[in-house]
Simulated scan of single mutants.
Amino acid sequence: MTLIDTHAHIYDAQFEDREEMLQRAEKQQISQIWMPNCARETVSGMMDLADQYPDRCLPMMGLHPAYVNDTFEEELAVVADQLNRNAFMAVGEIGLDFYWDMTYVDQQFVAFERQLRWAAEQKLPVSMHTRSGHGRNAFAEAADLIEKLGLTGLTGIFHCFVGTLAEANRAIDLGFKLGVGGVSTFKNGGLDTVLPQIGLEHLVLETDAPYLAPVPYLGKRNEPSYLQLIAQRVADLKQISIDDVARHTTANALSLLPALYANLLPE
């Protein structure tokens, strides 16, 4: 049984024990860890890990919506340069964040659309952040934009999916997978009534480490080795074996890998 963590910020400074953390993940049969970028300040640490573990730690490139500010054009220039010079498995972490601050929402939309177009042009999947707040539904507005753009072949993951069944079906209809993380283990997370109604073929697993640690580590630093707990929660909710969850979610994740990562696909 192997698992893929499709979203983890393992380059974060909280991982002072990075080597030990990666060893724990390996012991828990986490075969790959996909690393979303946040901004230019996170590129070097992420790429160092990608260079050190090319078959295990796979990098994405993108500008996180929470990092969009007055310098977003400069940040996007870095993203464009990196996408043109280096190999990445996805464009991410991109999207919309209405939770903390609405000051740069217009700029978030500009950055989101531009990066969606780059992903479609380069035939890369996207990892999307959609956090609602201030009376606005980030998932709905992201889905609206994707529908409006109609970009051929665009696919990817709605990272940290916490929506309704209707929203899940809308994401699936758009051709996207749903990223299931630690929230699925929360008592009031809301996914206990949604996940049983969604086919395994639409799900991938993630930790979002170092954030959103699953129960029983709620409130503590998250790490990829805890992905087993999320897989077990999905198995319990769907009343199937954890082996079935691992097999399907791993296959789903691998199906998103672009052609340049063909060496990581099973023969």
Rank of each mutant, 00 (worst) to 15 (best):
K187C: 09
L205K: 07
A168H: 05
H159W: 07
G190W: 05
L195Y: 02
L174Q: 01
L145N: 06
L174D: 13
G182A: 14
T155I: 14
G182L: 06
E201Q: 15
A171S: 08
V180S: 08
L151P: 00
A143S: 09
G181A: 13
E147S: 10
L145S: 10
L203A: 09
L145G: 03
F161W: 04
A166F: 05
L174F: 08
K148T: 14
A171M: 10
G181H: 05
D144W: 14
L165G: 06
P196F: 13
N169V: 03
F186G: 06
G163H: 02
F176I: 09
D173G: 02
G163N: 05
L203V: 07
G190A: 11
K177N: 10
A168N: 07
T152I: 12
A140G: 05
T164L: 12
I146H: 08
L145D: 09
I172A: 01
A168Y: 05
V180D: 06
G189H: 02
C160L: 09
H202D: 08
Q197I: 14
A166S: 14
R170Q: 12
N188W: 03
G153P: 03
D144K: 15
A171D: 11
V204F: 05
L151M: 05
I198H: 01
I146S: 04
L174N: 07
I198W: 00
D173K: 14
V194G: 02
F158A: 04
T152S: 15
L145T: 13
K187N: 10
A171T: 09
A171R: 10
L203F: 01
P196Y: 13
F186E: 13
Q197E: 15
T185E: 08
L154F: 07
